[in-house]
């Protein structure tokens, strides 16, 4: 039996990698990929807890996370494509119209 904390550490690493990716990278695609990392870390948590509790709810939550991830990706990529059409770049730093 793998201790639960192993899973937590793994998901923590994944999550933080994702966070760092969001903060570090400028390509919007990579940023979205990093967000996917974060969501996957969450999923690992859910599944690990679910197994640990013998409580199937955690797996159901993963389901919802998947749904949300899919929805976000659909909208996000649509935005990116529309933006690319308008500006021919998806580098966040080149969005100069609206300054940070």
């Amino acid at each position: 039996m793998i201790p639960l904390s192993y899973y937590l550490i793994l998901s923590g690493i994944m999550f933080l990698t994702g966070v760092i990716g969001v903060l570090l990278r400028r390509n919007i695609i990579i940023i979205l990929l990093s967000v996917e990392l974060m969501l996957n870390a969450t999923n690992i948590n859910f599944v690990a807890f679910s197994q640990y509790f013998h409580n199937v709810a955690g797996q159901v939550f993963v389901f919802f996370t998947l749904t949300v991830a899919a929805a976000e990706v659909a909208v996000g990529l649509a935005i990116i494509i529309a933006l690319y059409r308008a500006k021919s770049t998806i580098n966040i730093d080149e969005f100069q119209l609206l300054k940070w």
Binding site: L10, I13, M14, T17, G18, I20, G21, L24, R25, I30, L33, S34, L37
Partner: peptide
């Protein structure tokens, strides 16, 4: 872990 680092 390795691949997630690679992603970033």
């Amino acid at each position: 872990a390795a691949t997630s680092v690679l992603v970033v």
